[in-house]
């Protein structure tokens, strides 16, 4: 750590400070409110502002994920969870208020103490700007021949970490399945029930929403695949693409009903997909072992060229991530929505 380095107060730093101030204001508003609907919306705003902040810090991949996951899908999932409970939070008992106040105070004090040990922003001698990070930046292009260094670090140099993240997502999906059920009705029962998406009466309502979403859903899925396969060259990858494709299915469910969505993307497929993605990821690692190298070493995947092997490995694990993320998002969504009656046209 370099104690002499002081972060310059240029235009970008000022923009960062303004964005952080906005985050603080939104956070305070969330703490002060009792209306859960407003809190969920403000949480989305919080994510969008932090995504802006990440863009200003040049961390476009993180910003992309934050915008897709934080502002997009988690808002929808929180709304789904909110429908299962009451819309306003009860005021807390005074004793609990003081207890939580002291816990928050102690945590805040500990964090403030830790901040003094952090390097200044932009410090050339700080940990991310020295040691292994520089090594990755230097070696990424010759090793993998992939322009987007984020993808190569995430999938290749830090393959174990990403495998862990993917497993965590699967675990989250399993947890929701265990608590809320396996995503509702089985296929056979579903088919017996009349699906009203071709019903003339249902068509009469929300005509605008139906027409526009019919136009948009294929484009959203296409964009998801673009993000997936363009991840080697620009911001994006399996995590973002999975969330985008899942959000297309959720949009379909919101407009045309959950039953129609379950007919298009059956819960069984989604449940298998959640595990299949992790299997593809882990299987890529095993392939490395079989070909006589270390776990998750992609160099050996192509016997003729190590960089091409890296590219193959990164692409295959990104597909695994895509399948798991997309499926788990839908598992959670189906889990929440199958606990309550569908929103009827009357309630809109």
């Amino acid at each position: 750590m370099n104690a002499d380095f002081i972060t310059p107060l240029d235009a970008f730093t000022i923009i960062d400070l303004i964005l952080m101030l906005m985050l603080l204001i939104v956070g305070l508003a969330i703490v002060r409110l009792n209306d859960i609907f407003a809190i969920v919306m403000l949480a989305g705003v919080y994510s969008l502002v932090s995504a802006l902040w990440f863009v200003s810090l040049d961390a476009v991949d993180v910003a992309f994920t934050e915008a897709a996951v934080g502002a997009g899908i988690s808002t929808v999932l929180m709304l789904g969870a909110m429908l299962l409970s009451s819309r306003t939070a009860l005021p807390a008992k005074p004793v609990r208020k003081w207890a939580s106040f002291f816990i928050v105070l102690a945590t805040g004090a500990a964090l403030m103490y830790a901040v003094t040990d952090m390097p200044s922003f932009g410090d050339p001698l700080s940990a991310p700007n020295a040691y292994v990070g520089l090594e990755y930046l230097k070696r990424s292009l010759p090793d993998t021949e992939i322009p987007n260094v984020v993808s190569s670090v995430l999938a290749s140099y830090r393959g174990y970490d990403t495998l862990g993240e993917t497993s965590v997502i699967l675990t989250a999906g399993l947890g929701v399945m265990l608590i809320l059920g396996m995503g509702g009705k089985i296929n056979g029962q579903l088919k017996k029930k009349a699906i009203d998406y071709d019903n003339a009466d249902a068509q009469a309502h929300h005509t605008v929403l139906r027409v526009v979403s019919k136009m948009m859903i294929p484009l959203i899925v296409l964009y998801g695949f673009y993000v997936q396969f363009h991840g080697d060259f620009g911001p994006g990858g399996g995590f973002q693409a999975g969330v985008i494709i899942a959000s297309a299915v959720i949009l379909y469910a919101l407009i045309f009903g959950v039953d129609a969505a379950k007919a298009a993307v059956p819960p069984l497929v989604v449940r298998i997909g959640a595990a299949l993605g992790v299997l593809i990821y882990g299987g890529t690692g095993i392939a490395g072992l079989i070909l006589g190298s270390n776990y998750l070493d992609y160099n050996v995947l192509d016997p003729h060229s190590a960089p091409h092997g890296q590219e193959l490995g990164i692409m295959s694990i990104e597909i695994g991530v895509l399948i798991t993320v997309c499926s788990v998002m839908l598992v959670i969504f189906y889990g929440f929505t199958s606990r309550q009656p569908d929103i009827t046209d009357k309630d809109w």
Partner: peptide, 17 residues
């Protein structure tokens, strides 16, 4: 194009609701 199609739709949906 995306904003041109979606934002009036969103406004319509909110007003309709």
């Amino acid at each position: 194009l995306f904003l041109f199609l979606t934002s009036p739709t969103a406004t319509h949906a909110v007003a309709n609701a």
